[in-house]
Amino acid sequence: MIYFCATPIGNIEDISLRAIETLKSVDIIACEDTRVSLKLLNKYGIKKKLISYHKFNEAQVSEEIIKLARENDIAIISDAGMPVISDPGEVLIKKLIEEEIEFTVVPGANAGLSALLLSGLDSEHFLFYGFLEQKASARKKELESLKDFPFTLIFYESPHRVKSMLEDLLDIFGDRQISVSREITKLFEETKRGKVREILASEIKEKGEFVIVVDKAEEKEEVNIQEILRDRINSGMKKSQAVKEIAKEYNISKNELYKMSLEVQDE
């Protein structure tokens, strides 16, 4: 049997009794980083054969694990939290399903869900997005595709990119309500809640993994942009000024509005 086991995300005691018993019972443990995992295993007196299983060797080691699983029980763990969720494991799970090999999940700690509770934002419906692209242009494109999403959004971010991510968020989402959590379950756990501008203006300690929870987009009223444009031009406003104001007010492309303004003039 193959077991995908959750591990603590910070506090080493945040591990279930079932996970400890599973790790003690298996023959092999596949770890994202054996050095990190040894701290946890030593804490609970678990001595097993360890193999390294991370994003750079995931495809190759998945094949190895499948072969080993024919005669061994194996646990899959990541450095922190649930395997597969922004961590290695998805490649293996797909192969296990294809080859009809049995596996199960031993659930536990998760930073995204913990941050959602800490945020106080709507938890009835939400989207866990995980990490955005590292490159600024690609990240902005992703955020652009999410800005009208009607549910709470959950992002992971590294400490050295968190400020630039928040600046992009402000630029594309506007000054929306957010929550920024870091070092969840650790000694220096911290959560900041407020509008994006407010959080950016505060001191952000660039240490530890961050979870950013973003309020859902407000429902937009149905508006006739062409009618609004016509009214402003007919009231004496310059076409360029009307296009500029409406583009900002309704978050619409200036090029698109300029084409509309030509149609309005031709009427």
Rank of each mutant, 00 (worst) to 15 (best):
F188Y: 08
E167D: 08
H54P: 12
S137A: 14
L187I: 10
A30P: 12
G130P: 03
I77N: 03
G81Y: 07
V26R: 01
P159V: 10
L169S: 05
V243Y: 01
V223T: 10
R232A: 06
E99D: 15
A69P: 06
N110D: 02
Y53T: 07
K207H: 06
E190P: 07
H54K: 14
I252M: 15
T185M: 08
P83I: 00
S240Y: 13
G89N: 10
K239R: 14
K216A: 13
I97R: 02
S86P: 02
Y258L: 05
N72A: 03
I15C: 11
G194K: 09
A80C: 11
L68V: 11
T22D: 10
M165K: 09
I154M: 01
D73Y: 08
K244I: 12
I29P: 03
E71M: 06
M260G: 03
E63V: 10
R176Q: 03
R193F: 09
R197G: 08
E203D: 05
E98G: 07
D79C: 12
V105Q: 00
A6V: 03
E32N: 13
A111Q: 00
I28L: 02
S164A: 15
L50K: 10
F56E: 08
C31F: 08
E58I: 05
Y129R: 11
S78W: 01
T22A: 14
Y53L: 07
K47D: 15
E90G: 11
I46T: 09
S119F: 06
Q241M: 10
A75G: 02
V223A: 14
G208L: 00
F210A: 01
F4I: 06
G81A: 04
K244T: 11
I212Q: 04
E90M: 15
Q177P: 12
A80M: 07
E263I: 12
E167K: 11
K238I: 15
R232V: 04
T104N: 09
S137L: 14
S37M: 01
K254I: 07
D73N: 13
K195D: 12
A111T: 03
L229D: 02
R182A: 02
E71I: 11
K163F: 05
E203Y: 07
V105A: 04
M82P: 05
L153N: 07
F4W: 04
E203H: 10
M260V: 01
K140L: 04
K192F: 11
L113D: 00
L262A: 05
I29T: 11
E71Q: 13
K248S: 14
E256V: 08
A109T: 01
E64D: 06
Y258N: 03
L118E: 05
V162C: 04
K95D: 08
K141R: 13
E263D: 11
K248Q: 11
T34K: 07
Q241V: 09
L41R: 01
S114C: 15
I9M: 00
G108P: 00
S158M: 03
S62K: 01
I178E: 03
D87T: 10
A247N: 10
K94I: 15
I184M: 13
S119A: 11
E90C: 14
V223I: 11
N251V: 15
D27L: 15
L117Y: 15
